[in-house]
């Protein structure tokens, strides 16, 4: 075996040991060392040279980046997640036919979909979705994210929240918690338009607060325009869409003049 490869795999073993101990500082330190040493292999993307150890090297590198992605979730660092994921992606797409499929592939792809959903990058979400085969779509991890997006678009928020209980993978919890916050903001935005008033107890249930106190604080911070009067939250002041009484004369004059000008040009 190539000495360089042995060295890297040993380092990776130490990383994995630290990872199991949940010693994230050591992990991050070791990971940056690993990433530097990975640059010395010419068989990895973007070069993809066919060296004798290519398969082993690719396999190891993929394993390292998979751990890096999971580590970034555990340290709750979304930027690192994005970076690591993009480094990992070529191993799935471009080197996929040379390597045995990784058991981590679908959970990580689903995790990425979830991240895009949390960050509200729906266009990218759909772009990623197009890359998945119909078999991959059936995978519980991917399906979870896809169904979440659908419920989110429809507005079936309680389905989003109940999905938290059925996460297919432990790493999903971090993003699901973030999603719950987004959902709360969405719900309050929608309720504001949809209801005239709500009983405090209902509002508390709807906005997923465990106590009335939390609800009141939330209202004070985010929606100071809501009124609280004898056990009811008044979400919107009586607004009348008054029919237009006066004629917008200036605008009309401008429009008519421009019609005249254009018509003159035609004739």
């Amino acid at each position: 075996m190539d000495p360089k490869l042995t060295e890297v795999s040993q380092l990776f073993e130490r990383f994995k040991a630290a990872f199991l101990r949940n010693d994230f500082d050591t992990c991050t330190r070791l990971l940056s060392q690993l990433k530097v040493s990975l640059t010395q292999f010419r068989s990895l993307p973007p070069l993809f040279e066919a060296t004798p150890n290519a398969i082993d090297e690719l396999n190891l590198a993929r394993d390292i980046y998979e751990h890096a992605v999971v580590l970034s979730v555990k340290t709750e660092d979304q930027d690192a997640f994005e970076r690591d994921f993009f480094q990992l992606k070529p191993y799935y797409t471009d080197a996929g036919n040379r390597l045995p499929p990784s058991p981590q592939e679908h959970p990580i792809l689903g995790l990425n979909l979830l991240r895009l959903l949390v960050q509200n990058r729906i266009a990218e979400f759909h772009t990623e979705l197009e890359l998945l085969s119909s078999a991959a779509m059936e995978n519980p991890c991917i399906k979870h994210a896809v169904e979440l997006e659908q419920s989110f678009m429809e507005g079936a928020y309680n389905r989003v929240l109940s999905a938290r209980q059925t996460v297919p993978h432990e790493t999903y919890v971090y993003f699901m918690d973030l999603l719950a916050k987004t959902v709360r903001d969405e719900i309050s935005g929608c309720s504001e338009k949809a209801y005239d008033f709500l009983a405090i107890s209902d509002a508390q249930k709807m906005l997923l607060f465990s106590s009335e106190q939390e609800l009141l604080e939330y209202i004070k911070e985010e929606h100071s325009e809501w009124e609280i009067k004898n056990d009811f939250v008044y979400l919107q002041k009586a607004k009348e869409s008054t029919p237009c009484k006066e004629i917008p004369s200036l605008q009309l004059i401008n429009q008519t003049l421009s019609y005249a000008r254009e018509l003159e040009r035609i004739v």
Binding site: G155, A156, N158, E192, K193
Partner: peptide, 18 residues
């Protein structure tokens, strides 16, 4: 919640009575 989102997005003009 679907109705309330539709109201929010302006798809329908209605109010909800919880």
């Amino acid at each position: 919640s679907i109705v309330s989102k539709a109201i929010h997005d302006g798809a329908i003009d209605a109010t909800l009575d919880h």
